[in-house]
Design a protein around this nucleic acid. Structure first.
Lengths: 240, 240
DNA sequence: CCAATAGTGTCTTTCAGACAGTATTAT
DNA sequence: ATAATACTGTCTGAAAGACACTATTGG
């Protein structure tokens, strides 16, 4: 564990050892699937809370950064790589894990629907997408983590380009608006939504979509390479 | 360290022990003093970085929550209690501490100028208030922590009642505006500032202030018990 | 031509930003 | 009366919110 460095070592200073704690990362992985905001949960096989559902997470390795650990969990749970990942909050109540004290650094990830393996799975445990409005009983303080994540994402959606992360490469404006509505859990006015998109100069048309059902086909759009300074002037930010 | 619980224990599951890490909390303690935004730094006596200045911090005890640990550090560094304290970010790069891997949970505290002991001191080390614009070389990644804290505080100042925390119980509108200007590091228009205060219904007059210098004396104000729902309607929030 | 969905423009209100003069006090 | 500081009101432009009709397609 601690490197036996030449000069000062964490083992030396006091006669007694420093208290140290196992560290975990837990990731709140969100996507939009089937018109709903969904989160990945895995079924626990081991105690404590065996049989309950939990956020994908695991212990931080010796020489791994926190974000690397979170990305590792993300990859194991969904196969997704290079997706948006943000540190959320650190949960460290002494009693939060019944086995002993474990501190957990929670992360949020947003993945685009088209980059999610349809059924994420790990070797160790069953994993499923759950609607954030139809959640099973959850282990540890994972429900609190999820609530914190939703609150963070909803706030940031309004003044950052975070929403991009949930979309496939091309999409219709209707689909984009739906995503916002699903995350924010309220309806938006179509004209006002589009007016604002135009004002912020966030998207550009790429072609026409063949209609899937009846009715006029919608234009396809993609996100433009955003001009950070331009956005800031309008009180809009990148999500990091 | 880990409780030897009856059933599952963190020592059991695998044959090899789980990696575990010493955890520290570091607190960015901000106040307004002498017309400047200041932060408490303590001079390090021990390696690593002996002689450099650092944020007040220390190891998390066995059975202490993270916030308790931060409050303990806050109390040791300044004597302040019952002040605003918010978790900021967790810094966990494997190489951030040269002694070995230490993960640090950073907190921000805002203290009112009249609640700061004039010269904070600890037994172990010299402590001083530094202007955030005239900083000495700092240990570890503490400079990054401070920058993160400033960014957080500035953002929250604009849409929360966080600014309250920097003020004494009563104050003039001029003083309040000065505090905002000092934190935000830009000047504000007096009339627009007051208009907004009135709109949000944040303060109430309590009497008159005896003039200290020449000129018309200013009214004294205090913060009202804020109506959370009312604020939310106006896009304003409590700071937690 | 009908059903279904995509796309667009205007009015009103609110709020932020820029800006200058009056009021009260001590000397 | 003068100097110093406190206090206040208006105009303008930008953006948000509310709201209804036209356009394009397949059947």
């Amino acid at each position: 564990m601690l490197t036996k460095a030449e000069k000062p070592s964490l083992e030396m200073p006091a006669a007694r050892r420093l208290p140290s704690f196992p560290l975990t990362v837990d990731t709140v992985i969100l996507t939009i699937l089937e018109g709903e905001l969904k989160v990945v949960l895995v079924k626990r096989l081991d105690e404590p809370f065996a049989g309950l559902w939990a956020l994908p997470g695991g212990f931080v390795h010796e020489k791994e950064s926190l974000e690397s650990a979170a990305r590792r969990e993300l990859r194991e749970a969904t196969g997704a790589q290079d997706v948006y990942l943000e540190q959320l909050y650190t949960f460290g109540e002494p009693q939060r894990d019944t086995r002993g004290r474990v501190v957990s650094v929670a992360y949020v990830a947003l993945v685009a629907a088209d980059r999610c393996p349809l059924t994420p799975h790990r070797l160790e445990a069953e994993a499923r997408w759950f609607s954030v409005y139809e959640l099973p009983a959850m282990a540890f303080d994972h429900r609190e983590m999820l609530d914190t994540a939703l609150s963070r994402v909803r706030t940031k959606l309004e003044y950052t380009t975070l929403g991009f992360q949930l979309m496939p490469a091309t999409f219709t404006l209707k689909e984009l608006q739906s995503s916002y509505e699903i995350v924010l859990h309220r309806s938006l006015d179509k004209r006002n939504f589009r007016r604002r998109l135009k004002l912020l100069d966030l998207v550009e048309a790429v072609g026409e979509k063949r209609a899937e059902g009846p009715g006029r086909p919608a234009m396809l759009y993609r996100f433009k390479d955003v001009d950070f300074l331009h956005l800031r002037e309008k009180g809009f930010f990148l999500p990091f």
